[in-house]
Design a protein around this nucleic acid. Structure first.
Lengths: 345, 345
DNA sequence: AAATTATGTGCAATCGATTGCATTTATAAA
DNA sequence: TTTATAAATGCAATCGATTGCACATAATTT
């Protein structure tokens, strides 16, 4: 692969006996060029297979038309949908996306964020890793004059635009549904409590119990059970209690709920009659398990679009400072077989 | 968000009363700087919260330390795994990934590729969209001196590095397994035949039939049935034939196989006893359906690592031209319930 | 002590595109 | 015909980092 020299505006200029300035103006469709010249430049550019060097352009203009996204994992339903939503909206405006995965590692998250700052992205969209409690790297983004939008898993203390679900409400509705189905000893698999979303889900759970005069039983609340494996482990423990729960709310994810289901099945416990299972996120597979899993849909695709629009909205009024604000999307309970012991069509 | 001016090497230089050259050398750990100066620069850089402007650096150096990836959809198992594999390998070398989705649209694929060329990425890794047959945009990549690696769905005629599965072999093994399980009228749901991988899978199917002296029945071969919906539709047609198939190989994807399963279930046809189902890709959900779906694992994570290593290998010997070559990974048949009518543990 | 070699630093050009200002040319107004 | 105005183009600086070359100083060798 010979390092062929790429065509620049100077090559075009030389060929047409004009200056690079005019070529640049022509390519940028400026009104200060003759229509003739413009056409000629465009034609020559095509002939020479010219591609604008975005690096140079961005360096000069001080913008990058690039949005960086940092998520724990791209192949989780909510994240891939948010990304898709952002992409659909930004694509038409010729924005690029740089996507990074933190793999739930705080260190990698920090490294990714710094790499994006280096890249001079115009905006960073992030859902933070579960690990970690120091968010100075986010403050750093703001200090560099880069817009920052947090979604779903947000760091409270960093004041930015935030797009998230009403986790409290969703949780409340979910538990209420369980109670209506006649479940009385409802266990909670909770996520890392340093993350707001998991705290909110717990609050919703607690509030629902309270509203229905059900006692909070501490041994039914299991910390950090947020992967399939941890969910399975927690379930084993729970189902072996002298008084086991009759329902489990895997508030962390559907993966965790899947762990619950597998253990229950392997122990010969019938779902939903003997055990109700409620997940979170509406992963596609929740429809496919038997029984299918009741879960909560986060409208993640819509969230993605919202995020992108928020960015464009903000970048229009450059002068005025960003007013930190939170957009809350109301999630939806998707009732399926795993909790429907009274009725399920 | 005030457009705070970011610290540059000139700021550091000024503060230390040296030139930008020295600062640059210090930051790049060149051997031509005094240790003292180096320390001082590093310290000051940290104090001023300096972040190298990669745009400027890349512009000057003519490289970008960025790899562009174009895939049909990031949330398909093979693609998200390949991406993860590439990321793991490139991460430690401080490379950035720009990920684009073509959404199976040829137009979007072309636009993405061009955007990546503009970005001056060092390498483009692509799995082409099903739509489209003109691959001049790929030739274009090469003509711009950018390394190109195709994987999985490759355009044959473009001579590049290719990393793919031995689709023919996998298909052959899969069908052989079906035959061993006693299935005799095996239908094929085929993908767009302009893509090599789907042609190969068909060849494997045909060869397996031949080897076992089974006739090829044209009405059992359905074109372009490669989404869940199309798979379902094809299945409806097949199962309503006077002589319906006793097994269906959804050679295009597990999604298609899922469509098959759903239709079969809704028609009250028992899987695997009355109908065997074989998918392709080992999507996570294939384990979860009931019955679980037999499928073919592509070692996609490993493919990702292979791709990244291939790139680094190639970029080391800059002088010598790239020798187009193909690395073939042998996929593995994952036998599950949907085809196990003789035995399934 | 003179000659040679390291070592560290500065100067200035470079990467490619953009843009404010100046200049030329064409057009309209006086 | 002269002057005012508009349109098109050129000039040159700029964005920030890198690097070949030149030069000065220090260390080493004869």
């Amino acid at each position: 692969m010979k390092p062929k020299k790429r065509t620049t505006i100077y090559d075009i200029a030389e060929k047409l006996n004009i200056t690079a300035s005019s070529v640049s103006r022509a390519l940028n469709n400026s009104s200060h060029v003759n229509e003739e010249t413009k056409k000629l430049v465009l034609k020559t550019a095509a002939e020479l297979n010219y591609k604008r060097n975005i690096l140079a352009s961005n360096l000069r203009k001080g913008e990058s038309k690039t949005i960086g996204i940092v998520v724990p994992r791209i192949n989780q339903n909510i994240f891939s949908n948010v990304i898709a939503g952002i992409e659909e909206t930004t694509y038409s405006k010729d924005y690029n996306l740089i996507i990074c995965q933190s793999n739930e590692s705080h260190e990698k998250e920090v490294k990714s964020v710094n790499a994006l700052i280096n890249q001079h992205v115009d905006c960073i969209v992030i859902s933070v890793a579960a690990e970690g409690s120091d968010y100075s790297h986010l403050q750093n983004v703001i200090d560099h004059g880069i817009k920052l939008i947090q979604f779903d898993r947000v760091a409270d203390e960093v004041e930015t635009l935030k797009v998230l679900n009403d986790n409290h409400q969703a949780s409340l509705e979910g538990i209420t549904h369980l109670i209506e189905q006649g479940y009385k000893r409802i266990a909670l698999l909770e996520g890392p409590q340093n993350l707001d979303i998991f705290r909110q889900r717990k609050q919703g759970y607690l509030e629902a119990l309270k509203l229905h005069n059900l006692p909070v039983i501490n041994e039914l609340i299991i910390e950090n059970a947020w992967t399939k494996e941890l969910g399975a482990e927690a379930t084993r423990k729970l189902l072996n209690l002298p008084e086991p729960p009759d329902a489990i709310f895997a508030s962390t994810s559907d993966f965790s709920a899947l762990g619950v289901l597998e253990v229950a099945t392997s122990m010969g416990i019938k779902v939903p009659s003997e055990l109700g299972i409620l997940g979170y996120s509406n992963e596609p597979f929740t429809e496919l398990t038997s029984p299918s899993i009741t879960t909560i849909d986060q409208f993640s695709h819509y969230m993605g679009k919202t995020i992108a629009n928020l960015y464009f909205q903000e970048s229009e009024n450059k002068e005025s400072p960003v007013v930190p604000r939170t957009i809350s999307v109301k999630p939806k309970l998707i009732i399926r077989a795993s909790t429907s012991r009274r009725s399920y069509k």
